[in-house]
Design a protein around this nucleic acid. Structure first.
Lengths: 271, 271
DNA sequence: TAGTGGTCTAGACCACCGA
DNA sequence: CGGTGGTCTAGACCACTAA
């Protein structure tokens, strides 16, 4: 239980960026918690980095020192740091050391107003179910789900709005053969209040992976009207196939978004 | 060096999906190789899975057995399997075991012809440099790079084609202050033959992360002409900010794609 | 040459799952 | 209950980097 905040501040030129902090100031581990030690450490460090207490460029001590400052073994400390590397928060180089990564700017990319902005601006997104029921699988959905065209599927069309304006039309197809997803598994009320993915999880479906394709095309007259856009406006399209942890296709969705008010953002780490 | 392909085929009902194979049939480790043992194992397993030698649903032995079949310690075997979990190729459940995941279908999503299809169809992509030089940073690029508007930047516009038709116009801005990227670092010839990212790596830049925003809008008259599309056609847009391993912004790109012939595909693992 | 992270080992105990 | 993966420890040697 010894955890004196040892401060190493040797003579000579001041260190590049901080180093007056010690892990003990930032991380406290609870050995009685059911949360794994490495995860406690990783979370604490992530919080500290995101809060700026470990600023960009901050040089961390080597993993052996850190480990015994916290009273942990080296592998455990290491696992915590690997977690942060995977998240892109720190960089480690053999023979060099570990430094905190510069936070990404992100928000400078918002050239147009985004869905997230609308949500952040206080307007909660709302969902309206336009249709819901069992219907014969169209060719597109049948191919995605790997079944015969015409097989009955849960079929639903939802309109997603934010800030009082429609943003997206989402069409989803789900097989009726999965446990917990028999006919009648979905209701308009639940879909509008709970959301599809939460309902799936509640039904015992474990989402594991998804493939998405993002494209664009011009809106049809009907789509322009539905999404409150000009005729022939550009739409973002997204098709998604979602799989559960046994590799079964759980859902196929084909969605269109009003491109003037919506865009997709992604962050990638080194390939 | 004992590596007999031990086969476990107990009495009773035939196992669900395979189990007549052993790791020894699929993985051979070379302790003299500089390649880490866990990585050798992970690669061999990945290859076997993707080749179908370990079919979807295949149940792997527990990690202790696997480890000593290969003459490895449990942590090393474990690290190999964690690698495969991260790649989404296997699923592990405590108290249950490890199984090979169903391969994703992917290709059923190609509703429209994609860039990849064109490349796969034999037409190599080609790049034409439309302009290249130093220019004052426009507001958009200055914001993304975190510098003052008007700062001189490497500025380049490239036209990417496939199957003899233009597909994308890519506009990139790069600071001149990074080591190896002074004025004159880029030439038309190198860009057309080598590609921007490869040139960056050669200049000693280590790409680490990127933020992307994908949207859509209608083409201007000039863009329609350049990309060989109808007037007002839908375009996919993508802005990207790339960072090096010190968190410095390396590049800002703003690109437009002919949506009738291009789309983005992504695969996601459980969040 | 000194210090760093990368890899590897051989144990241990535990939480969870299904029969 | 037995078997599984999840966590943790305390060492060891090595490859790489920088001074």
């Amino acid at each position: 239980m010894s955890r004196q905040p040892v401060r190493r501040e040797p003579e000579g030129p001041p260190p590049a960026a901080g180093s007056a902090l010690t892990l003990g100031d930032v991380v406290v581990v609870d050995r009685n918690s059911p949360v794994p030690l490495y995860y406690q450490v990783a979370q604490a460090l992530q919080t500290a980095i995101e809060a700026g207490r470990l600023p960009p460029g901050f040089r961390l001590d080597n993993e052996i020192q850190l480990a015994d400052e916290l009273g942990l073994s080296r592998p455990t400390m290491r696992k915590a740091m690997e977690y942060l590397v995977d998240k892109g928060l720190i960089i480690r180089r053999r023979g060099v050391g570990t430094t905190v990564v510069q936070p990404k700017v992100r928000r400078s990319l918002q050239l147009t107003s985004l869905y997230d902005d609308l949500v952040a601006a206080g307007q909660e997104p709302a969902t309206t179910v336009l249709s819901l029921g069992l219907a014969a699988a169209p060719r597109e959905a049948a191919e995605a789900l790997g079944i015969a065209t015409g097989t009955p599927l849960h079929t639903m069309v939802r309109l997603r709005s934010a800030a009082g304006r429609p943003i997206a039309r989402m069409t989803n197809y789900l097989p009726t053969t999965l446990p917990g997803l028999g006919p009648g598994a979905f209701t308009v009320e639940a879909l509008e209040s709970t959301g599809l993915y939460r309902m799936l999880r509640a039904a015992g479906v474990t989402l594991h992976a998804a493939d998405e394709t993002i494209g664009a095309r011009k809106a049809t007259a009907q789509e322009s009207h539905l999404l409150d856009e000009a005729r022939g406006a550009a739409l973002l399209t997204m098709q998604r196939v979602a799989y559960d942890d046994r590799g079964r296709v759980v859902e196929y969705g084909s969605h269109v978004y009003a491109a003037s008010r919506y865009s997709f953002s992604l962050s990638l780490l080194a390939t």
